[in-house]
């Protein structure tokens, strides 16, 4: 109690009041800044980061917005987000596949130009880049799915026959033709966007999306039985009895001879 009875010096009181005021001001300003920073994290789906870009939250801690990757991009693919006009965090590099896709230079000059490692210098082969993943988003308008042979996305793909293949199936509409479905294999797709750029439709039926939107993920504990079995080279559970398959016997043959069994009852008017 004695401490409170001692007179406080006006200088000390003023110091504390001023410190509290400026600290309060900084807390308010800092909160606003933090809010703006949170907001800036929402990267729109059309905006793709350059090859080797760290995951978005890490990228925003590493990219100093110098623009060297933009300058060294020989195809003018990359641009810096302009304040208030482009959606990515202001000053950060991005590209829009439908405008100018990434041409996947072998020497990856944008990564070489990055002074901070926001574009990972560990990316040595452009085929390992994962800027996004192409998704055939509109099967109803895709010409190939309609039964035509457009094939443009497949033809322009720099990783043709690996990142995009044409999977044939029966064309039920015509009844006698095939459908050549462009099919993306995410293991090989770099997200360069050449397919989206080249799609002949007014709005592309195949689009490169950020991987977080394009893909699901398998749960860690899932095991595919057939893969496990192949890896082991034997049934996973030992001593399991493999019963013979019940196959209908061909007409006239004894069921036991074919490994099949006689049906338990016969349908009225059945052939057998």
């Amino acid at each position: 109690m004695s401490a409170t009875l001692q007179p406080k010096s006006p200088g000390r009181r003023r110091f504390l009041a001023e410190t509290a005021r400026v600290a309060g001001g900084c807390a308010v300003a800092g909160s606003l800044l933090a809010y703006v920073a949170r907001d800036a994290r929402a990267l729109p789906a059309e905006a793709l980061r350059p090859p080797g870009a760290m995951p978005e939250t890490d990228f925003l801690s590493a990219c100093i917005r110098c623009g060297l990757c933009v300058r060294d991009c020989p195809y003018d693919t990359l641009k810096l987000a302009e304040l208030g006009e482009d959606d990515p965090a202001t000053g950060t590099p991005y590209f829009t596949a439908r405008d100018v896709p990434c041409e996947m230079c072998d020497d990856i000059p944008c990564v070489a130009a990055c002074p901070t490692g926001a574009l990972d210098p560990g990316l040595k082969t452009i085929d390992d880049a994962r800027m996004g993943t192409a998704v055939l988003v509109d099967q109803e308008n895709c010409l190939n799915f309609l039964g035509l042979r457009c094939d443009v996305c497949y033809r322009v793909c720099p990783v043709i026959d690996e990142a995009i293949t044409l999977e044939t199936s029966h064309n039920a509409r015509s009844g006698k033709h095939a459908i050549f479905a462009p099919t993306v294999h995410a293991d090989h797709c770099t997200g360069c966007g050449l397919c989206e750029k080249s799609c002949v439709l007014p709005d592309a039926a195949i689009k490169v999306l950020p991987i977080r939107l394009a893909r699901g993920s398998s749960a860690d504990h899932y095991r595919k039985g057939w893969e496990e079995k192949e890896r082991k080279g034997a049934p996973l559970v030992e001593g399991i009895i493999d019963l013979p398959d019940r196959m209908p016997a061909p007409a006239g043959a004894a069921p036991e001879a074919t490994g099949g069994f006689e049906p338990a009852f016969k349908l009225p008017g059945g052939a057998q």
Partner: peptide, 13 residues
Amino acid sequence: VSALNGTIAWELV
């Protein structure tokens, strides 16, 4: 703010 948010905060403004 940079440390708490994991971003280069001042460069936004």
